[in-house]
Structures are given as structure tokens and as C-alpha cells.
Design a protein around this nucleic acid. Structure first.
Lengths: 240, 240
DNA sequence: ACAAAAGTGTTGCTGGTACACCCATGT
DNA sequence: ACATGGGTGTACCAGCAACACTTTTGT
């Protein structure tokens, strides 16, 4: 125990001196599925240190807002969307991660339906980039993206959040392709179909695909109510 | 888009004005397994608002240290341990979570072997509390604890981190009991045994339990090398 | 001898995987 | 007619769950 134990923020009154103050930002990793490809919404940086490089959409936290609210605000301001899947991923706190000074950032994972979203003209610096084509990024944003993608891969296997990337009505082919894009594997079409049907989470909406140049597939929707009931049965297994 | 789009921390040079500065702390949720019970290391708070209530071990982040390093420092200063499982869980950023002002905190999950750790005399405010007996806590620490426990439950099923809670050599009974304590379920002893053996992660150290008042069990150790090789085969399934 | 927990095997079921053929639509 | 992908069924295999008896040690 070489160090003196200092007054502790949780047990002893401490003054929040400037010495212990930091800037905090949120960065949103906004995933979308478009034309059969997993994409992420990025913006070009104008910072001298990273001019022309791609960065995530983020902003500084304000004094009067919760951290979660800040991420929601960024999403709303930049995309106009107000109801999307949004969840905290991780906070990145390396000392020199931002050239402007000590800025820590909390990454949020967002899943949006690209069709719902219209890029605004004046925001032409924004662009949907295929995840597989992204090379270097500004700051530590490449690390943040990779971390978020790993979390996404895990979460789509645990919870039915993948439907947030699709329209309300979707074909089984689309659903399978999103899984394959995110996980980087291919599934047998017949087994995938069976597996998804046995979850009981798909509702047949009795409609067919339109304007496809082959036999149209049936459309389904995610059955939220069925999921609410199923998820109480907490499944336990050991899978390492 | 009702709001004016402000200069963005990632795209436009911004000054880190005091208006956008916050205090940041780390809080460690330190789990230990002792006498058949899952416990967490807590300290009594002296803050007027929470006097006498239990809180996690935490401290303010310093300007020259990475966020991860801060959590490691808290662990080292408070327990003397220098090599433990430690991983970020989540950042809690509600506006009014701390009475001293706007303090956000990043929670870290730590797994330690209680036997390795000697409570220091002068730190008698520290105590190992059984998780199941904890009621209210200071600040939002109850929420942090619950969140961390949920993460722990998930992670022990995905990665073999549970061995950090045990001594190097352990019996299958101990291993099973830790799983049961954390997950809150009971396993069939015979099936558990089979399952763990088939993972190939246990090494029989050819020793027996000592000083038990019944037939002694064999002791095993975690085979780290076997795990390194196995874990490349990234298993993919859909389990929601 | 008794108590307490260790150690072991079989059976049935469930769920995953591998795999091939016919069908509906657009061109 | 051809190309494209939709829709279906079967057979095998692996893994999980349920379950009972014998063995070893301490008292």
C-alpha cells in the first residue's frame, strides 16, 4: 500500500475542484441495413488533426441533461428520428484520445431503419458507409466502432433487437441477410426459417413482397407481445 | 429539427469551457465468494446525505490517468491486490445522482479471491456483505450493483471468468456452488460434472481436499492454455 | 454404524445440421 | 423456356435433462 488513501468521493465530502473536472461527450454508432449491406452513419471531421477523416456523430454533454438523454438528443438533432433502439455500449477514457484536451466519451449503439430516415440536404457531410469498407477513422472511433459491432453481434443473438433495422413488414430473406451481414456467417435457408418460426416471434401479415423479379416471399412482422411473454422464462446455460 | 445544430466536438474545433466540464469517478463492484456465499466489498459512507449507508469503493478520476487505470488504482489502494479480473460495466450519468454536484461514475466489475485478500485493520469500515442481504445503498449504488450482477450472470456463461473467484485449486463442488450462487439456480451434480469436463478447461491436479468431514473431492485447476486454443472457434447461434 | 458428500452411467428427448426437390413470378 | 429465389420435409447426430446406486472419509 504505497499510496496514501485520499478522501473518497463516496464516503467523505469532497470539493469538486477544477483539478478533477473533465469534458464528456457522447458518440453514437448508428447502424442501418441498406441494400443488403450493414452501414454506419458517419460525418467528415473538420478538426485540423483529423481533417477529412470519418467520425461518429457526437456532442458534448450538457450540465442539465442525463447521459442517456444526450445520446438521444444527438440522434434526434442529426437524423430527425425520435424513436429508435439506443443503448449505452462503453465509455472510452484514454488520456490522449482527443486533441482538444481531456475528453472522455460514452459510446451509444443505435439501430435505425434507413428507409425511415431522410438525409437532410444541409447535412451533406453525413454519409452511410458500409461497415466492411471503413478503414481508418478520426480519434479512437475505429476502436469504438469495432467494440460496438462486437456488442451488436452478441446482442442480436440474445434479444430480438435486429428488427429495428428492418421495416415493420419484412421478408425472411431480408431478416436472414441482416443476421448474416452482422455476424459474418451464412445460414442454411431452410434451417433459419424453421428456427425463426419456432421462436414464435414472427407474425404472418398475409402480404407478399412487391416488385421483385422472382417469386415474391411472404411478409412478416415482429410480434412484440409474444416476446414480452416469452422473455420471462430466463434461460440458463453454460456456453463457454 | 427544432434545435440549432451546434458546433460538434468531433468535427469542429471547440473550446472545452467550464460549462461543459464534469467530475468523473470510478466505482468498483468487487465480488468475492466466501463460505459458500457471493459477497461484495462495501464501505460505510460518511457523507451527510448517506451517513451510515453502504457504498461501493470509488474515487475521482485524475487528470493524468486513463479511466481503466483509475479503477485499477482503487482496487490496489483498497485491497492491496494487483492482479485481478477487472472490466468496465457501464457509466451512470443521471443529473442528480451525487449530492456534491454533477458527478458521473463509471462502474467496474472486479472478481477477486477472498482468500488472497486481507482486510487491513485501519480500513475497518470495509466489509464483505452477502449480496443477498443487501438492502438500500448510498447514491445510485444499488442500481449499479444490480446492473453489475446482471452483467456478471451473463458473462460467467460466456467466458470462464468465474475461476477468478476461486483459489487456484478447487473442487467441483465449490465451482458448482459459485455458479449456483451467482445465477440463483441449482444444477444436477452429475450433469454439471459432465458438462464441465467436456469443456476441456479443467486440469486434474491429482490432489484431494483436506480437512473436510466427509469423503474428500479431487481438486482441479483452470486450464488457461486450453481455453486460448478453444476460444478461436467463435460459436454462433441464435438464442433469443 | 452412521452421516455426508464423492463418484459414476443410461436413457429419452430436444434441437441443430445437412441436404434435394418442387413452386411461383418476371423476363 | 429460363432464371431467380420461395417454400417444404426427413434423417442423423450431439447435447441436455432426468434419474439411483456405490464408495470414501470422518465421527
Amino acid at each position: 500500500m504505497e499510496e496514501l488513501v485520499r478522501p473518497n468521493i463516496n464516503t467523505t465530502p469532497v470539493e469538486l475542484m477544477p483539478d478533477f473536472q473533465f469534458a464528456l461527450s457522447v458518440d453514437c454508432v448508428i447502424f442501418g441495413y441498406d441494400e443488403g449491406v450493414l452501414k454506419v452513419l458517419l460525418i467528415e471531421s473538420d478538426l485540423p488533426a483529423y481533417k477529412g477523416q470519418w467520425s461518429l456523430l457526437g456532442d458534448l454533454l450538457r450540465h442539465d441533461e442525463d447521459l442517456d438523454e444526450a445520446s438521444y438528443r444527438v440522434l434526434r438533432e442529426r437524423t430527425g428520428l425520435t424513436d429508435m433502439f439506443l443503448e449505452q455500449v462503453k465509455t472510452f477514457g484514454a488520456v490522449n484520445r482527443h486533441p482538444a484536451g481531456r475528453v472522455l466519451t460514452t459510446a451509444y449503439l443505435a439501430l435505425v431503419n434507413v428507409k425511415d430516415y431522410q438525409l437532410k440536404k444541409k447535412e451533406n457531410a453525413l454519409q452511410w458507409k458500409p461497415v466492411s469498407e471503413i478503414q481508418t477513422m478520426a480519434f479512437d472511433h475505429r476502436l469504438i466502432l469495432d467494440t460496438s459491432l462486437t456488442v451488436l453481434q452478441r446482442k442480436i443473438q440474445e434479444e430480438p433487437i435486429i428488427f429495428n433495422l428492418l421495416e415493420k413488414k419484412f421478408s425472411l430473406r431480408d431478416l436472414q441477410h441482416v443476421f448474416e451481414q452482422i455476424l459474418g456467417v451464412e445460414f442454411d435457408r431452410r434451417n433459419f426459417r424453421k428456427k425463426l418460426f419456432t421462436t414464435g416471434l414472427l407474425t404472418d401479415v398475409n402480404e407478399m413482397e412487391q416488385q421483385v423479379r422472382h417469386r415474391p416471399g411472404r411478409l412478416y412482422s415482429f410480434n412484440q407481445k409474444a416476446y414480452e411473454q416469452i422473455k420471462r422464462k430466463t434461460f440458463v446455460g453454460l456456453q463457454f
